[in-house]
Write a protein that binds this DNA or RNA. Structure first.
Lengths: 195, 195
DNA sequence: AGAGTAACTGGAGAGCCACCCCAGTTGTCA
DNA sequence: TGACAACTGGGGTGGCTCTCCAGTTACTCT
């Protein structure tokens, strides 16, 4: 589960409120997208808005807390894909996993992939952003070793592409389009001649 | 230049205010992106915010008015590209033109390409959205005729892709990445074997 | 020209929002 | 159990979008 960002363990009541907010945020974001009102989230969690803002100094931090579990399983899936498939197909399949999550998450994933770049308040251990890029880099490295992907492709670009595609899909409310766009992108990173 | 949306010609003062607002919006959007405050725009134009809202019932309509000229020249460029190049290269070059504009427009173009889908308040003659999709369709049709582009690719998907890429770039403030992503996309729509 | 009329205006206000301050409350630990 | 630091939430600030309406201003008709 999510954990406190602070140095030493939170007091019991603070911890309880932290979790209440994350739970409420999960519901509200799912309903209304990542743009939803933070006051609404505080209201549904039954805490004052000041409490929400103290625990989560920016919308981004709250989004990370909500997405943390999903992202963790997604990265675990990357390892499974790597173990059970050839490097090329492993990467492509995982990109589809990522894309599916990104499209279904109502903008959560796009948010994480997007503006997480700057050295924000990433807890040193494992911010969502960092976990995902590690997973992507590893899969890409393997795929490039076997020439299943053109050289010169960067992991950051792949993630940016998926984020962008899912944003388009969220806006158009059209999951099928996201699939087609990802197909184009995957076709675009494969080498001209199959190895 | 922009023109009034209403049925019969605007009164002289109304017309003057309309143009003042569009001018101010052009500046403010360029400074701060498409998310900028509409009140700030009204302030800079020297009109009340009610006046702005009467002329432009939604942010989207104002964005269209601001972008109209740019989009017109972009579509003219499409015809030039078609006349002076082979169909494949013409499409690819124009996609780069579009992408360059989209990236430099601070989100204007992405806005137009995105949520313009629903039958909004498009003036029947030529909404920006419509002009662009016509241009794209024509270039794509020609390219597909000569097998310079895989069949099954849709014009809407190309536009969504460019919109998405430019959004990513706007967010990352990284124009080079947009170029790389577009390269991937273009590689992805070309046929496996050159004709 | 001058009056009548419809078009147009902007200040003021309603209802949102994010974010902050601080007096009061509540866990925690000696 | 008492004392203190951690934590809380009501209420305030300032900004946003969008609307209402009393007043102003440009066209029009004689």
């Amino acid at each position: 589960m999510g954990h406190a960002p602070g140095r030493r363990p939170l007091r019991a009541d603070a911890r309880r409120n932290y979790d209440l907010v994350v739970g409420a945020a999960r519901e509200v974001f799912a309903d209304q997208g990542v743009g939803a009102s933070l006051e609404e989230i505080a209201r549904r969690a039954g805490v004052g808005s000041a409490t929400l803002h103290r625990h989560f100094p920016s919308r981004r931090v709250l989004i990370e807390a909500v997405a943390h579990d999903h992202v963790e399983t997604l990265c675990a899936k990357a390892e499974v894909r790597a173990r059970e498939n050839e490097p090329g197909p492993a990467l492509f399949a995982w990109l589809r996993d990522l894309n599916d999550y990104a499209v279904s998450s109502r903008g959560l994933a796009a948010s994480i992939l997007h503006d997480g770049q700057d050295a924000d308040l990433l807890e040193e251990d494992h911010g969502c952003q960092v976990m995902i890029i590690h997973a992507a880099r590893e899969l890409l490295r393997r795929a490039q070793r076997t020439d299943a992907v053109r050289p010169g492709i960067r992991a950051e670009d792949l993630l940016a592409l998926v984020a962008a595609i899912s944003l388009a899909a969220v806006h158009h409310a059209d999951g099928e389009q996201a699939g087609r766009l990802l197909d184009i992108a995957i076709e675009g990173i494969r080498p001209r001649q199959e190895p």
